[in-house]
């Protein structure tokens, strides 16, 4: 479904991604972890072309992201993305946030889009907040709306870029629960997160990155049970003991 082939990226002379190779199969949940600055956010932003890369290739659903022939907007509309800081549109009501791209990109009618939005809001437990503005919701609620906004496009895969890092601790679980539900239904997911509990419970595979390299790419049991690299061992000992 998503395949990385020798992907390298530089900011001027600084290399942020070094020859990254991996792939995410349909229905697979892959957690990407690693210390800050390791390139994990950059890696998933390359999947829908939010970050350009200079070398290598990323194939999504048979299409190369960086090829000129690829209609990037159409490809993006098929991949849901959830950001660390939610990025809901503050001047729009919750329903309008979810409706916008359905109407403008997929060409759905207002009624169709609203029906879809309400169904998804019910699913993330926020139907009674449909007419509020994002600023009137808590962080956890905003992030659930953001997930609904991504799902409204009927995506073939969802990307999560540290979806719980900006949340107060008591709100993290409400967001993780929604994500767990999605994974159970077979959604293809790539999740950058520090929530190792979530990774253990939900992920099929874990990718560990450091200094722009994919250091470890293993099944969840192997990664937590017998990490091969010294760096992964160190990272796990730090992150699991706090």
């Amino acid at each position: 479904m998503i395949e990385f082939k020798n992907v390298s990226k530089w900011y001027d002379t600084f290399q942020v991604l070094k020859n990254c190779n991996t792939k995410v199969d349909k229905g697979e949940v892959v957690v990407v972890c690693g210390p800050s600055g390791s390139g994990k956010s950059t890696l998933i932003k390359c999947v829908n072309g939010l970050e350009p890369f200079q070398q290598g290739e990323i194939i999504v659903n048979g299409e190369s992201v960086s090829a000129n022939a690829t209609n990037l907007n159409r490809l993006r509309s098929k991949i849901g993305m959830v950001f660390q800081s939610f990025e809901l549109f503050p001047h729009m009501k919750v329903t309008d946030n979810i409706n916008l791209a359905q109407i403008k990109v997929l060409g759905r009618s207002v009624e169709e889009a609203t029906t879809k939005s309400m169904t998804l809001l019910k699913r993330v437990g926020l139907e009674e907040h449909a007419h509020k503005f994002p600023g009137q919701l808590s962080g956890g609620q905003q992030q659930r709306v953001a997930i609904a906004r991504g799902l409204a496009m009927d995506p073939i895969a969802m990307l999560f870029d540290e979806p719980t890092s900006a949340l107060d601790p008591e709100m993290i679980n409400e967001v993780l629960d929604v994500m767990t539900g999605l994974a159970k239904e077979g959604m293809t997911m790539m999740v950058v997160t520090h929530e190792m509990g979530f990774a253990k419970r939900v992920a099929h595979r874990v990718i560990f990155m450091d200094y722009g390299e994919i250091v470890e790419d293993a099944t969840t049991e192997d990664f937590f049970g017998k990490p091969r690299s010294e760096r992964a061992v160190q990272f796990l000992s730090k992150i699991l003991h706090h």
């Binding site: 939010l50 509309s77 809901l88």
Partner: peptide
């Protein structure tokens, strides 16, 4: 991120 969010949704 606002611009990114719009772009990621497939908006031109």
């Amino acid at each position: 991120g606002q611009r990114m969010a719009g772009t990621a949704l497939g908006l031109t």
